[in-house]
């Protein structure tokens, strides 16, 4: 009985190993020799869930394709649409496209992260990055006791705290009780990792949303800023969805 179990486990392991080797050989050829323009080296495309449907994210496969329209514009009226700095806050990480792809395949699929289109709904309706949810900066700039902000924070996995007594507060201040990622009114211990984006480097909507979140105590290490936004996403011919 024991021997048969060992044989079965060994055959299962061999099959899985063989599968991985086979899988590696059978993957789509990308790069200079192949026809596929990948997302990045050895990554032809990925799938992300958008409103309950799986969407394939890839680059435009036509090397002669040129971007036209609004996001091909070089300049906009400044103010208000002025170029913003690379960093919104010293502790908030600014990310690029490859980090977004990894985020889509890991935190989004695992439910531990949210990709947030921080633009107003009229912008979101005209096209967005697949996998994004629309939480406008106008909501995330509200006061901590505003119903819209409360609903947003709850959807991000933050939990409202029971009124904190003087004793608890003192113990937390002394470090006797764990108070990391907690404010007087919110517990951010299990809150989701967020990537916020808007129209691009000259867009102030996601920086405002990030500032709003920091003001209510959202942990900065759980916030990421995709500065490239819709403009850079489209410049690289990446899939958008209406």
């Amino acid at each position: 009985m024991r021997i048969s179990k060992v044989i079965m486990a060994a055959s299962v392991a061999m099959c899985v190993f063989a599968g991985q080797v086979l899988g590696a050989e059978e993957e789509v050829v990308v790069g200079a020799q192949g026809a596929v323009i990948p997302l990045y080296k050895d990554k032809p495309y990925l799938h992300v869930i958008h409103k309950g449907r799986s969407v394939k994210v890839q680059r435009v496969q036509d090397t002669d394709f040129e971007l036209h329209g609004y996001f091909a514009k070089t300049s906009r009226q400044c103010p208000p649409f002025c170029l913003g700095p690379m960093e919104v806050h010293p502790q908030v990480k600014t990310v690029g496209e490859i980090e977004i792809f990894h985020f889509m395949e890991n935190q989004l699929r695992d439910g531990t992260g949210l990709l947030i289109d921080a633009r107003t709904p009229e912008w979101h309706a005209k096209g967005t990055i697949p996998g994004s949810v629309n939480v406008p900066f106008t909501t995330l700039s509200k006061a901590i006791d505003d119903l819209e902000m409360i609903e947003a924070l709850e959807s991000f996995g933050a939990k409202p705290r029971e009124p904190v007594g003087a004793v608890t507060k003192t113990l937390e201040e002394w470090g006797v009780m764990k108070a990391e990622n907690m404010t007087d009114s919110w517990d951010f211990t299990n809150c989701k990792e967020l990537v916020l984006w808007c129209n691009g480097p000259a867009c102030g909507q996601s920086p405002r949303a990030i500032t709003g979140l920091l003001e209510v105590g959202y942990p900065p290490e759980k916030i990421h800023y995709y500065r490239g936004g819709m403009q850079v996403w489209q410049l690289y011919g990446l899939t958008t969805i209406n």
């Binding site: 799938h47 958008h50 449907r53 799986s54 969407v55 394939k56 994210v57 890839q58 680059r59 435009v60 496969q61 036509d62 394709f65 971007l67 036209h68 329209g69 609004y70 996001f71 091909a72 906009r76 009226q77 208000p80 649409f81 107003t120 009229e122 912008w123 005209k126 096209g127 697949p130 909507q205 819709m230 489209q234 011919g237 990446l238 899939t239 958008t240 969805i241 209406n242």
Partner: peptide
């Protein structure tokens, strides 16, 4: 209001949909 005005320009030039149309099967359920 500036954002609202700017958003109207996306419609008139149809920029954002260009990339999504060009990338093929976006939006199809697997």
């Amino acid at each position: 209001s500036a954002l609202k005005q700017e958003a109207k320009k996306v419609d008139s030039k149809g920029g954002s949909s260009t990339a999504s149309a060009a990338t093929g099967d976006a939006g199809n359920a697997v």
